[in-house]
Design a protein around this nucleic acid. Structure first.
Lengths: 214, 214
DNA sequence: TGTTTAGATGAAGGAACCTTCAGCTTTGGA
DNA sequence: TCCAAAGCTGAAGGTTCCTTCATCTAAACA
């Protein structure tokens, strides 16, 4: 069963010409647009194809079924966020824990806020059975990378970096979700970011071995 | 449209005899069970009716449509959690902020962990268009109640209680979701609870006017 | 006991929509 | 220019599942 779902996730046909690569891209973009405008419940493959300017048949040449299409959309979105975080994690190795926390918050939040509607709409996808696995995997990978970053902190850690990373990421998730589902996320962005900074800083301070003056 | 959805949410028929009240209860319980066993995607009204030991027709006498059924299930679940939090918020007025944070975490987490599968399965419902409104409303109400609690803290607050409550609840949500979606939530419950305590305590300390020794 | 009302039934209507496939068009190279 | 391969089309098949309603049973009450 797992084998089947993994196999069916693969594109039916791999684009070899340039135009088909553009088609796949258009379909994925259209999927997001439809998701944003009508929601996951009312998204149909025909609607997505129309929006992409192709026929349904074309869609089914690159995605074996509707679920695969949604999963691909979700993966694409999460990959964007993950890339931002990865970048930060490479760049800020061996700095102070508080710096790490601060830049992590900025990277994660601004990646999510880059396209508010899209991020919010994809929550519906990441909650169903197929999406959940992808979301979990992405989250787990994110925690691992952040844990590795924390392990290089100039101050020593009193706790397992994995646990610290898990907590920070969970808080980040909670607050960003709250933000994305707010009436006007743009307006609340700055204040919530500040407050999140306070929250994470307070926590990270308790994870440092020799407490500094600040 | 809002009027329509509100009207259709109302039960089609109000139970007047005792047996029908029991039927409604059985249907709601069955909805949760089906949700847990096959997920929201594959839940059908016929399946729910079968599980409840009634016919589909009976289901449609109390719920105007499938969406209303799911919404009712979600409401029931959230009401359970809200009741726990409300209770705490009445009981711990005028205590210290740290006490409030601690009992809040316990109340919220144990309410969610009371039935792990159910809580996890309902995330799918709370993410779709109909469920989102309910979830948001419940969350907003929770924040308001907690903010009122925080406003009575024996120590003075340096910030708007609403903001403090929002952050604490967002962190709570993030961590409990992470917990509920873990492979074995029971095993991780205690350690994550401890860590959540540290996280929230650290934050609340920064919200107190005159910093105490502890 | 008879009548009225509440409650329950489940086959069938019918809409929605995923997915296929036989045939058409475009592209790239020989 | 011409052909083979890649790409595209969209009507139609088929399935799933929501929802209804004519009909039956159980309960309350006089």
């Amino acid at each position: 069963m797992a084998t089947t779902s993994l196999r069916t996730l693969q594109p039916r046909k791999t684009p070899v010409q340039e135009r088909s690569a553009a088609t796949v891209d258009a379909i994925l973009q259209a999927a997001i647009q439809v998701l944003v405008s009508v929601g996951k419940e009312r998204l149909t493959t025909t609607l997505v194809a129309m929006r992409a300017g192709v026929s349904v048949g074309t869609l089914y040449q690159y995605f074996p079924n509707k679920s695969a299409l949604l999963q691909a959309s979700l993966k694409r979105h999460m990959h964007g966020v993950a890339t931002s975080v990865d970048h930060i994690c490479k760049e800020y190795r061996s700095t102070s824990l508080l710096t790490m926390g601060s830049v992590l918050i900025d990277a994660y939040l601004s990646a999510k806020m880059r396209n508010v509607k899209e991020s919010a709409a994809l929550y519906a996808v990441s909650s169903d059975l197929d999406g959940l696995a992808i979301a979990k995997a992405a989250h787990a990978r994110g925690c691992r990378v952040v844990a590795e970053l924390f392990a290089t902190a100039s101050e020593g850690l009193t706790k397992d970096p994995e646990i610290v990373a898990t907590m920070v990421m969970a808080a980040l998730n909670g607050v960003s979700r709250r933000l994305l589902e707010a009436k006007s996320p743009e307006r609340e962005h700055a204040p919530l970011r500040e407050e999140l900074l306070v929250l994470v800083r307070g926590y990270l301070l308790t994870c440092i071995q020799t407490k500094p003056a600040i």
